[in-house]
Design a protein around this nucleic acid. Structure first.
Lengths: 193, 193
DNA sequence: ATGGTTATGGACCGAACGGTCAACAACGGG
DNA sequence: CCCGTTGTTGACCGTTCGGTCCATAACCAT
């Protein structure tokens, strides 16, 4: 019927997401996006709308992917309490991950005050994460590793908060050995085994 | 000898800092800075250098002021362990503070990957904060509120990390009542009284 | 009062910004 | 084979960007 697209939508979205992730929203120009995606302005606009819409699309894709990856990592632990430990230790386990930080965290800091869409995405994602973590807490309680008296939702919010703190500290360029030790120690204190 | 300045340097720096704080670095234009400071371009440049130098000056002033304010708050507590509790509960105690977050945290997320000067400022400030906190930990140990076996530096890094996590979560727009409860609960678990 | 010196404010600059558009290219159905 | 439809490309638009510069203003020592 008509000319087919010459690009893979997911691949473009990934390239664009990577640039927003590293450089931030405001510091990324359309020229940057054209370069990393290999597309012309017109194609970018026709396929994804303007810069802001493209950004939100990339952000949402990132948040979903990230959530799925976190679920995978935690699923790999045999006991729920170990999965909860991974929640704290994984984000600082290797240098590249630690330095890059989390795209949602970075852009929330940059834009939360000015952009309701970003706030909404953050709220949505962190609520989903809290529920997921609370599920692991409940399982760890059934497995006898966490006292049954604990409130799964409250503990989940604590762990998520601490995780974000660790992710942020990784972004600052702090010494990674010390940060790993901090993560382990926090896991020891918050998840008495 | 010559014409005197028509503005107060600290006042201008505060106005400029406020705008960078809320809007971020890249999203702030020289026109914004002229508007909030009431100065013309020429005066701004003559007094503070270009946008980036002005930003760094404002950031450093913020970091120093913030550190001093934190010291004041913690000094108000009679026992060191209570000061350490305040480290976690103060940043989420009122809505305005929580929503605004921390300028250094916000800009570190935005610029850490691209701007070595910002990384350096973050490293400098967080090292200073860690030392200050470690001092309180040591005092709390002398006062018998924290086990003498604890490593003050390690505990300080943990508390700072958790504090940053709480500050970040406040910026996301999360429910503040829940966040306060999270802060209190984390304080209870990390600072056994 | 005046001259030396610095501050001020806004005109001005080239470059880069986000966004639009129209001419052209590539495909499939008839 | 050719036409309708959609994708691609790059020229082009007005605006805004950060930064420079200079005529003028305001001050103080003399």
């Amino acid at each position: 019927m008509a000319r087919p697209r010459s690009f893979d939508e997911k691949q473009v979205l990934r390239a664009v997401r990577d640039h927003f992730w590293d450089a931030g929203y405001a510091a990324t120009s359309l020229e940057d996006l054209m370069r990393v995606s290999g597309l012309g302005k017109g194609s970018l606009y026709a396929a994804f709308g303007d810069k802001h819409r493209l950004f939100l699309t990339a952000l949402r894709a990132y948040a979903d992917e990230n959530h799925a990856a976190l679920c995978d990592i935690m699923d790999s632990a045999p006991r729920a309490v170990e999965a909860l430990r991974l929640l704290l230790t994984a984000p600082v386990a290797d240098a590249e991950t630690a330095r890059r930080g989390c795209m949602l965290l970075n852009t929330t800091c940059e834009l939360a005050a000015a952009d309701p869409d970003v706030r909404a995405e953050a709220a949505r994602t962190y609520e989903k994460a809290t529920e997921m973590i609370a599920g692991y807490v409940a399982r760890a309680q059934r497995e006898g590793d966490i006292p049954a008296t604990a409130d799964p939702g409250a503990l989940a919010r604590e762990l998520l908060t601490v995780r974000q703190g660790l992710v942020f500290m990784g972004r600052t360029g702090i010494d990674l050995t010390a940060l790993e030790a901090t993560a382990r120690s926090l896991a020891d204190r918050l998840l008495p085994l």
